[in-house]
Every structure is written in C-alpha cells, then in structure tokens.
C-alpha cells in the first residue's frame, strides 16, 4: 500500500489539528478513508510502514492519560516515526509562562509533530502559535478532543455505513466534556442528528445553540436513537453538587438494559473510556453485544495514524 499514490485524493490542507471546528465534511471523510487503510495496516502481521521515517513525534501530556498517549505512541511507531513521551504532571507546572517556555524549549529540539494534552481550554492553540511543527490537540480542558471525535465517527461509519439520517444521543456530563464538544461538531458536519442527554446541571448553558436537541430524560433522549454515546462522569461533579450522588446518577442516567430499550434495536453503544461501571454504564451493557467500546480503542490507533500522515504531508520537505 502506498499512501503517496493516493495523495491527490486526500484533502486536508491544515498545518495543525487543534479541533474539529473549522474542518469541512470532505476533510473529515478523507481522514476517515485514510484511517480505514491504517486500520488494515494495524491488522497485518507486519504493522510497520515507513511513511514517517525520520520524523520526530513528541507526546506532551500536561494531564495524565493512559489510552490516548499510548494510542498516539503506537500510531507514530507503526508509521516509523521516532516517538518521545513527555508527561508533565499539572502540579509541577505554573501555567502560562511555563507552557510557553516548554513550547520554546521543545521547539528547539526540532520535532515534526507535537501531540499535546492540557487541562486548560485553549492551551494547545496557544502553544501551537509558538512552535514550527504540526500540533495535534489530544484534549484541551473542556474544549475539544478531535481525534476522539474522529475515531467515534469512524466506528459509527463502520457499523452504520453513512451519517445522513442517523440519530446519535450523547449522554452524561456534556457541560464539562471535550469529547461531547468535538463529537457535536463532527457529527453535525457529517449530517447526523445529535441529541444530548443530561441533568440540567450537566447540560451546559445554551447547549441547544450548538445545533443539538437537549433532553433531561434518558427515555426521551434515547428514543429511536441509532447510536448511544456515554460519557465518563468525574467524581468531582458530586463534590461540587452538580449531582447529588453516584447512585442517583446511575438510577436516572446510567445506561442499563431498560433505558437502552428506548433506542433502536440495532443501536450501538459507545464510551470514550475509561468507564465507571455502575455509574454511567451498567457492566452488562458495557460488555454486551451492542457495545463497540473495544472497537473504538482499535480505531483510535488507526485515526491517529491517519492524522499523523495527513499532517506530515503538509510539513515542509526541505
């Protein structure tokens, strides 16, 4: 398989991937097409290619992550890049100035691709202004997590074929979720109908202005949905009294067989992980026949390979 031979069909004229916002439908679809090839590559015995040979990829994580970081690491390695991981725990940095300092320092090491996760919304974009390489947002606060939205779109397309006419219900802590924001943007761009389901305290203000239909009842929100996407509930939502307790949350919003029965019979169940079983999702659903949660993880590597390739192609070759 030669990616170069297909280069003319790939339309992705961006230097960075900071969010789904601003991406056109064709751009997303061509990334998904490229991801399918990467998925096939990852299923071979010899998973390695030379597309990024000689390139340096740095994973810069200001917020701890297991799956996203290892997914990017594997994606870089499968494409032949040199990969370095830098984890900077939040406690040891002092915002603002240090972020810029770190960027300038790293830039001097001449990386080609920089994958960044940060706890503050907008931090990745700020960093991207200070470096010469391509920057990929691996999650900035409650703002965006574009590769998650892409892997979700890829997983949905593999099961449902097309996005037109699909109803996707995103359920849980919408207000604080970068996964929700990126998915709302991407699914709307792709032509799906998006619903969000949460208690009012976790919906976020004016969420209906984002082009979604908002529900506070799982039964109503899941009715005839094709895709049910659950979000992780952080414990701190209880301590800040946005919801009273885990048991109440599970009772009214946890996905169990009864609530899932409102969705279409062939609805798939998704979760970005890591899951809180018994809080936002019942174990029987997480492990059940309609769950595509493990496939999402596999598609995660594929999508990240596609993103690295697409951006690397736009890097100067001099």
């Amino acid at each position: 398989m030669s990616i170069a031979a297909e280069a003319p069909t790939l339309s992705f004229p961006h230097r960075h991937l900071l969010g789904i916002e601003g991406l056109k439908r064709d751009e997303i679809l061509s990334l998904l097409d490229l991801s399918e090839e990467a998925a096939a590559q990852s299923r071979r015995v010899d998973k390695k290619s030379n597309d990024l040979r000689g390139r340096t990829l740095i994973n810069l994580f200001f917020e701890s992550s297991t799956r996203t970081q290892s997914s990017f690491e594997l994606a870089g390695k499968r494409l032949g890049a040199d990969v370095m991981n830098m984890s900077i725990p939040t406690s040891s940095i002092k915002k603002g100035e240090t972020l810029i300092d770190t960027a300038v320092t790293l830039n001097a090491m001449r990386p080609d691709l920089l994958v960044v996760r940060h706890h503050a919304a907008g931090a990745v974009e700020l960093l991207s202004q200070k470096v010469d390489c391509s920057v990929i947002n691996a999650g900035d606060g409650s703002h965006e997590h574009p590769t998650q939205a892409l892997l979700d779109a890829l997983t949905i397309r593999r099961h449902k074929g097309d996005f037109e006419g699909l109803t996707v219900a995103i359920c849980g802590d919408i207000a604080h979720s970068r996964v929700a924001r990126s998915n709302i943007l991407s699914l709307n761009t792709l032509g799906a109908r998006v619903r969000v389901v949460a208690p009012s305290t976790l919906l976020g203000e004016a969420v209906d202005r984002l082009g979604v239909e908002a529900f506070t009842s799982m039964h109503d929100g899941l009715k005839d949905a094709d895709v049910v996407m659950m979000l992780r509930l952080q414990r701190e939502r209880m301590s800040s009294s946005l919801i009273p307790s885990q048991r109440e949350y599970f009772h009214f919003y946890g996905l169990d067989a009864e609530k899932l029965s409102s969705a279409k019979e062939d609805a798939i169940v998704m979760h970005p992980g890591p899951m809180n079983r018994g809080v936002e999702i019942d174990a029987s659903i997480a492990d059940g026949a309609r769950s595509v949660i493990r496939e999402q993880v596999e598609m995660g590597v594929a999508v990240r390979m596609a993103v690295l390739q697409a951006l690397a192609r736009n890097l100067p070759n001099e």
Binding site: S241, I243, P244, S245, E248, H251, F252
Partner: peptide, 9 residues
Amino acid sequence: GTDMAELGL
C-alpha cells in the same frame, strides 16, 4: 447547605 441531597430518589 453544602451538598445537594438526592432529590430524584
């Protein structure tokens, strides 16, 4: 007056 009770339940 510090933590919300389980209003729904």
